[in-house]
Design a protein around this nucleic acid. Structure first.
Lengths: 331, 331
DNA sequence: TTGTAAGCGTTATCAA
DNA sequence: TTGATAACGCTTACAA
């Protein structure tokens, strides 16, 4: 068992009380230069650094934020995690990454995060209906929660999202201008899909343009494979004359899988036979072999908004931020 | 400030001492059924759960493992993070994700992780030469460290890696069989590149087959863009007759970028004009528009090995695990 | 400016 | 089985 030096030991070595040692490590504390020097010297010799755990126990602040994630198939999670951890760290916070899966569900995770005394919980791209936790449990005693990159389904839990209405308006406008008139939409996991609101807005904007028939394809997960499977199923059954002329997929990874299937296994051309649109602006979508038209979420602004709420600079309320359309060759 | 119930409060409510409350929450502690029932009842009413922070302070065990990451461009990090968090959680551990960047370097991160009393540190795909930390600091007082998915550069710090020698032997054998004789190798970030040992083994195995001239391309980072830029630079200058007939890239994301450039901007065919090999078996590499031949790291086994060492089941020593060659159409 | 006492919510150990 | 004392390493409030 490794043994760390404590403030008391440094105090003895420096010939002061342990509180003076604490002061030497507290910015702005009242302490003479001389004492501070002696303390820091002794601390250096003993290799002392403050125990943040003990500090957290005393201050009731861990500077830890739990980040819940349940979908690792979407490569777009990675740049988000990068931005999130970087900004958290810049604020003196640290991310505890919690994998929500069959063995460790939201309730488990939330209870655990609470027991670990995290300062806040970010539901990143995930949310849950509160069926197991009582309102009392959720309201009192639980750390403040925030939903990032999807709608919140819990009263009082704010969400930070990309403006889906604006996004889909831009997308549908673009597709309409390009002359497409037989739109299709591919959803991912049903539980997540509605909360993203992409499908509904897609349908509504097309209706606003007088196009009432929107084909819905559904993949069961958000992965390239699921996207490919979904479109294969559709193309196998459909009469080519009745085929959609543009397919919007709920996110890029579905779209990339769909494109591979459309071209590779059915020999159709994109966008001539079917145009494809994604969502997220994942780096590889821009590759020349895809050229996927997509929509970029305002990642940095979204992350900053959540952190602002956590730090108390911003009101904890649902925020909707505008992203931007990225047009490439797939439309 | 939210207020949690404490063991003392539950004790008062249940009419027992706080130690009895603790026992009710300690599996296998000696306590009568009756006491336990009363305690759990009172705990339910007060919504009490043990404070893991206080427990950690008392036991000197946080059940937290810091995971250092410094390259978020490689989508392969995601499945690794998924496996890692899942397995850690299965063992009652939790991952603290630390983003190593210009503002928060290894030394900062290590010092911070140490102060937070994490049980272990995993350097995931990253490592550093110990220039700033004294040996005493590293040896004593620091949490046990492990390097995952690359070589360790610190004495006494074990690494868990995919067997690069075996991997490159398989790859070179495959390429040789296919008839390629003018190999090239693309490295990524220099600091990481040598520690992966892929280039050296690539060169050595070719030499073993009598092929001494190996072209080296270098990308400065591990990203599709960097891969594309590197191969563009090369193809712009080279006489087509002297061109490599196969290009191995240090990882898939470089390879995908390279493939896009080779086909999209230079109009060359893969594998006819240039064959391409990657490393990692990233999902999209298998897409029909790439069909990238690559090598799959034994992700689950690697993660299990690190965790085994952390939990003390395995000797903390460098482990080299075999992966498997995935042949597709790019070769 | 410095030292003291009390407290944060647990666990470890021992006595009853 | 239960209660009590001490300890974990720090912070806060207050007195010297």
């Amino acid at each position: 068992m490794r043994k760390r030096a404590t403030a008391k030991e440094v105090a003895d070595a420096a010939g002061v009380s342990k509180w003076t040692v604490i002061r030497a490590f507290t910015p702005g504390a009242s302490i003479t230069e001389e004492s501070k020097r002696r303390v820091l010297e002794a601390a250096a010799v003993l290799n002392y650094t403050p125990n943040l755990l003990a500090r957290s126990l005393a201050t009731n602040l861990t500077h830890q934020v739990a980040v819940f994630v349940d979908d690792f198939a979407n490569p777009q999670k990675l740049p988000f995690l990068e931005t999130l951890t970087e900004r958290l760290q810049a604020e003196g916070l640290v991310a505890v990454l919690i994998n929500i899966n069959n063995h460790f569900d939201h309730v488990h995770a939330l209870l655990n995060a609470d027991q670990r005394q995290v300062d806040a919980v970010i539901l990143f791209g995930t949310a849950f209906r509160n069926e197991t936790l009582s309102d009392r449990q959720l309201g009192r005693g639980m750390p403040p929660m925030f939903v990032l990159a999807r709608d919140s389904q819990i009263d009082g839990v704010p969400a930070v999202v990309c403006d889906a209405e604006l996004a889909l308006r831009d997308i549908v406008d673009h597709l309409y201008e390009r002359g497409y008139r037989r739109p299709g939409f591919m959803t991912g996991a049903p539980a997540l899909s509605t909360a993203l609101r992409r499908r509904q807005h897609f349908i509504d904007f097309w209706k606003g343009k007088g196009v009432d028939e929107i084909v819905i394809l559904s993949a069961d997960r958000y992965s390239a494979e699921a996207g490919a499977g979904s479109v294969r199923h559709y193309l196998n059954d459909i009469d080519p004359a009745a085929r959609v002329d543009v397919l919007m997929c709920e996110n890029d990874i579905l779209a990339l899988g769909a494109m591979d299937e459309i071209r590779g296994n059915f020999g159709l051309r994109i966008p001539d036979d079917i145009a494809v649109v994604g969502f997220d602006n994942y780096e590889l979508g821009g590759a020349s072999c895809y050229g996927l038209t997509t929509y970029e979420q305002p990642r940095i602004e979204m992350v900053q908004a959540v952190i602002g709420m956590i730090k108390g600079r911003l009101e904890p309320e649902t925020v909707t931020l505008p992203g931007k359309l990225v047009v490439r060759t797939s439309t």
